[in-house]
Computed example of a mutant assay.
Amino acid sequence: MMDHSIWLVVAIFATFFAAGMVKGVTGMGLPTVAMGVLGVLISPLTAASLLIVPSFVTNVWQLLAGPNFARLGRRLFLLALAITAGTFGGSYLLAAGDTRVTTMALGAALVIYAGHALLARQLRVPPRLEPLLSPIIGLITGLLTGATGVFVVPAVPYLQALWLEKEELVQALGLSFTVSTGALAVALAWHGAFRIDNLALSTLAIVPALAGMWAGQIIRNRVGPATFRRCFLICLLVLGAEMVVKAAF
Score class of each variant (00 low, 15 high):
32 T>S: 13
157 P>A: 06
205 A>D: 06
229 R>Y: 09
28 M>C: 07
136 I>Y: 03
31 P>N: 10
249 F>S: 14
220 R>S: 10
25 V>E: 02
66 G>L: 06
175 L>W: 11
192 G>D: 05
242 E>C: 14
16 F>A: 03
80 A>H: 08
119 L>E: 10
125 V>P: 00
233 L>M: 04
130 E>I: 06
44 P>W: 03
27 G>K: 03
33 V>D: 00
180 S>M: 07
119 L>D: 06
94 L>H: 04
52 I>T: 02
212 G>S: 02
69 F>E: 08
195 R>Q: 11
188 L>F: 04
43 S>M: 10
149 G>M: 07
118 L>E: 02
17 F>C: 05
133 L>V: 06
5 S>T: 14
218 I>P: 10
29 G>S: 05
145 T>Q: 12
169 L>R: 04
84 T>H: 09
105 A>F: 07
234 I>V: 15
69 F>S: 07
85 A>T: 09
213 M>Y: 06
67 P>A: 08
78 L>S: 11
163 W>I: 13
111 V>H: 00
45 L>H: 03
171 Q>S: 10
75 R>Y: 13
102 T>D: 05
242 E>M: 14
85 A>H: 07
77 F>S: 15
76 L>N: 02
134 S>E: 08
1 M>Q: 12
92 Y>D: 08
193 A>E: 03
183 A>G: 04
127 P>D: 13
164 L>M: 13
50 L>C: 08
229 R>C: 00
11 A>S: 10
73 G>C: 07
226 A>C: 08
163 W>M: 14
11 A>D: 01
53 V>Q: 00
243 M>L: 15
23 K>C: 00
2 M>W: 10
160 Q>P: 04
128 R>K: 14
78 L>R: 12
192 G>T: 06
187 A>I: 01
44 P>Q: 03
23 K>Y: 02
209 A>V: 09
247 A>F: 11
92 Y>L: 05
161 A>D: 09
78 L>P: 03
102 T>R: 03
103 T>D: 05
34 A>C: 10
97 G>S: 06
51 L>D: 04
